[in-house]
């Protein structure tokens, strides 16, 4: 795992080409609603990537990244509507705010390790909803608030129909996600990325080689939270409405599960995890049609719920492919 993944294998090249083609074709095939849903799926890669950075590269188990998605969304909504900042600034600040929260949340991770950190982050995920209800002026309290500002296409954008705006938002999200993936790839293959992984594999040895444990851990956590926050910010771009009930603890757990199922420790894995979640969701919708097949139909209707499939998948993959979907071809244990 210490060898940087500079070379792109043939399979990954094929996958990237297929995904790229899909990204180009999608706007021509979908309605405005479909396009928005697709954008939301693409955006959710960032949250999964955030968990991947903290857990896969940094070795700090986080069950609470839904919290940072929430912070990013609430903050962006606040900046753009209450402070009337331009969207781009609000998005960057929203992600940065989540990063700051992540750094604060990462402070306990300096001393709390492994399974205890998982416990603390799970607690964070559970406390987030009631806590956000306490600040109704920013979060809209129990019922949420809609953001008056809209992320619309600028004047030079061809066409002014709703569809044109949707396409604009879609392309914007795709661009940001690709940029974030590229930046993350660079970070994990940089000097900092290597010290991050050294810290995961053997903290003592890393410290001996001159890695500053404190700053590396806090930075890793902040970076991973900022990615999740960016996901939240883009959610506000797509749907100008924020509400605490979008961020239940289960959502954090599903984000974590997507990261693990896709494959920790590879960027590609996070994309795969989201793809898996999407495919499972679609299969579930299809399966829900088959009502009245008795026990068989009942089993299929369970597939309708991605929480069940991911829970089940998490257990299954831990036994069969500990490296997740991205690592099916390389069987073997996780280096931890």
């Amino acid at each position: 795992m210490v060898v940087p993944e500079h070379r792109v294998s043939r399979l990954s090249a094929f996958g990237i080409a297929a995904l790229g083609a899909a990204l180009i074709v999608i706007p021509f095939l979908s309605s405005t609603t479909g396009l928005r849903q697709t954008s939301q799926i693409i955006v959710s890669v960032l949250a999964v990537l955030g968990v991947n950075i903290a857990t896969g590269y940094g070795g700090m188990i986080s069950l609470g990244h839904g919290v940072f998605v929430g912070v990013g969304a609430f903050a962006t909504g606040y900046y753009v509507s209450d402070l009337s900042l331009p969207w781009l600034v609000a998005i960057v600040l929203g992600a940065a705010t989540a990063g700051v929260f992540g750094a604060l949340a990462g402070l306990p991770a300096l001393r709390i390790r492994g399974i205890h950190l998982a416990l603390v982050t799970l607690g964070l995920a559970i406390v987030f909803r009631p806590l956000s209800k306490r600040f109704p002026s920013i979060t809209g309290g129990v019922s949420g608030r809609s953001i008056e500002a809209r992320f619309d296409a600028p004047g030079w954008w061809p066409g002014d129909s709703r569809m044109a705006s949707s396409v604009y938002r879609y392309l914007f999200c795709v661009l940001i996600v690709l940029l974030a993936l590229w930046a993350t790839w660079n970070v994990v293959n940089s000097r900092f990325g290597r010290s991050m992984r050294a810290l995961r594999d053997n903290p003592t040895a890393a410290a001996v080689y001159g890695v500053d444990l404190i700053s590396a851990r806090v930075t890793t956590f902040a970076l991973s939270a900022a990615l999740a926050g960016l996901c939240g910010a883009l959610q506000v771009v797509l749907v100008p409405f924020v509400s605490q009930d979008k961020f239940p603890a289960q959502e954090s757990l599903i984000i974590y599960a997507s990261a693990v199922v896709g494959g920790l420790g590879t960027i590609w894995g996070s994309v795969l995890g989201v793809l898996a979640r999407t495919v499972v969701g679609k299969l579930g919708e299809v399966a829900a049609e088959f009502d009245g097949l008795g026990p068989v139909g009942e089993f299929f209707s369970l597939l309708d719920d991605s929480a069940f499939v991911f829970g089940f998948g998490l257990i299954l993959l831990t036994f069969l492919f500990p490296r997740g979907l991205a690592g099916i071809r390389r069987r073997g244990g996780i280096t931890q």
Binding site: I61, L63, L264, D305, F308, L314, L317, T318, P322, G333
Partner: peptide, 26 residues
């Protein structure tokens, strides 16, 4: 699992949590 890493144990118990929860909801 035979004394696997913390990560594997967290995965198993979180998987169990998610699966049981949605089974009950269903």
């Amino acid at each position: 699992l035979g004394g696997a890493s913390d990560l594997a144990l967290v995965n198993i118990t979180i998987g169990l949590l998610l699966a049981t929860n949605s089974l009950m909801a269903q």
